[in-house]
Design a protein around this nucleic acid. Structure first.
Length: 202
DNA sequence: CAGTCGATGTACT
DNA sequence: GTACATCGACTGG
């Protein structure tokens, strides 16, 4: 009998992130992202992720070595890497694998679990609920995550990841190629919860 | 619906 | 100078 507690989806987030980044990206689906903001707790279920790795992955920010921007990717697993892009957007990643090796999981989409009214004020252009957080920059906007959080460590500061809710049954997971990139398109390193309406569109 | 395109600032060549 | 791990507005069907 296999030990069910050793299945990736049951391994604590920090331990999971310390291992293979692609395995971690898949096993993070369904877990809950929490952000603390002056006594308030924002919660959202992770529904879409992508893996990035410095080796054999030209789309990775660290594909050509360490720079000022990507340096957090080389830190210990569990750090948070936030970058600014397109002149106006932020995207959040969870650093994975061994310290000194750059790898990270991009959180592409989440499903808000509370504070919906607050999120709506931060995403005034959203036409329907799914638009609130169905993209990497949208969720950062909804959770007020910017480069101010770059270098934070999970559970140590205002951002943490906890296990999936007990009453949540994980649906089938879809494994496919990453989107929004021009290099490394062939790698099947994007994962999402099948049928979830908060999953982003290519 | 789908396709196209401008916004807007930074990192890196 | 160019590209960018995006979004939202706009067009045409």
């Amino acid at each position: 009998m296999p030990d069910i507690n050793r299945q990736p989806e049951n391994i604590p987030a920090l331990e999971l992130l310390a291992g293979d980044v692609v395995t971690a990206a898949e096993a993070l689906l369904g877990r809950v992202l929490i952000k603390e903001e002056n006594g308030r707790q924002l919660k959202a279920r992770i529904v879409e992720t992508e893996a990035y790795h410095e080796f054999n992955d030209p789309a990775c920010h660290a594909a050509r070595g360490r720079t000022k921007r990507n340096s957090v990717m080389f830190e210990k697993a569990g750090h948070i890497y936030v970058y600014f892009t397109y002149g106006m957007h932020y995207c959040m990643n969870l650093v994975a694998e061994d310290e000194g090796r750059a790898a990270a999981v991009l959180i592409r989409a989440v499903e808000p679990l509370n504070n919906i009214d607050l999120i709506k004020t931060r995403r005034p252009k959203a036409k329907k609920d799914a638009d609130l957080t169905n993209g990497p920059a949208k969720l950062c906007r909804a959770f007020n995550i910017t480069t101010k959080q770059n270098g934070f460590f999970l559970g140590r500061e205002s951002i943490s990841i906890v296990e999936a809710q007990k009453d949540f049954t994980r649906p089938e997971i879809v494994k496919t190629t990453r989107i929004g990139i021009s290099k490394g398109r062939e790698l099947p390193w994007r994962f999402y919860l099948k049928g979830n309406r908060f999953v982003s569109k290519p």
